[in-house]
Amino acid sequence: MAGYLLKRLGGAVVVLFLTALLLAAAVHLVPGDPARAVLGAHATPELIAQIRAKMGLDKPVAVQLWDFFSGLLHGDLGTDFVGGVPVTTLIGEALPDTLALAVASMILAVAGGVPLGIAVARRPGGILDRLTHGLSMIFVSAPVYVTSLILLLIFAVKLRYLPAMGAGQFSDPVNYLSRLILPATALALFWWGYLPRILRATMLEVLSAPYIRSARAFGFRENVIFYRYALRNAVLPIIAIFGLMVGYSLTGTVFAETIFGRSGLGTLALSAIDQRNWPVIRGVVFTYALFFICANILADLSYRVLDPRVRLSEEFETGV
């Protein structure tokens, strides 16, 4: 297990390094000089050169990278070109709103998707199954910006049940939560379509496994077979999806934040891209990557703990 963890962490470092490399290269590949973007079209060449030097853009890419990584080790992601604020501060301010949204959406996704999946698997071919089958198609194929807009229009603009714009303040939790509901639901809709289908399929597969028949032959209670025996094995593949889910939620927040006018990492990134504010872009992308990688490692580890078979094949792999 320890060996496996080390391997995964090593892999994570490599991915982060490649991300940084790509971002450094992007500065040069993306059209538009960042210094000019910051200063506007009428800046003098001297001023531009000065700013470039301040940004460190005159140094060779290798040095830029080195600076970035050595900064990173000290928890320093550089300074915002425009406001002169440390990037970590900007991210620190934006992160809570984004995390709140992502976590809320994932809680909604699981809380809605898993019970629905179980109910559907309980009676395959039943009314609920047929009903969700059609709906799930729509949910899965509708992009976040569409679901966001529709929810916004119906529940905030037309019915005025919920506030429309902004993220609110932590200090007023009720208001804050009420502002989370719509964007989180917009993000969860996809999973309400997806999770029941997957769970239904894996449940039915597990329920037709020989060991389920054996359990019946020994007179196990049907509830035990379904909720203890089959569910555990059917949920395993879903845990593997958790990493995907984090990725989806994070990218989804970008749209949801824009449409609902929320502050957060997404909005921060978009304005930074607008301004060619490279340190901020780099910082935000890095944060995304970090969360994504951690989520995947976490999903993998819990899968391993829950499925004894994986532990075994792992031993074989590292052994040979």
């Binding site: 496994a209 020989p210 060991y211 389920i212 028949r213 054996s214 359990a215 032959a217 020994f218 007179g219 196990f220 025996y229 555990r232 094995n233 395993l236 829950l306 499925d307 004894p308 078979r309």
Partner: peptide, 18 residues
């Protein structure tokens, strides 16, 4: 199970792996 029980051909698959 108690009055009539059954065992199957494939012992590799007749126990729940988890």
């Amino acid at each position: 199970g108690r009055d009539i029980a059954m065992i199957f051909q494939d012992p590799m698959q007749s126990l729940n792996p988890t």
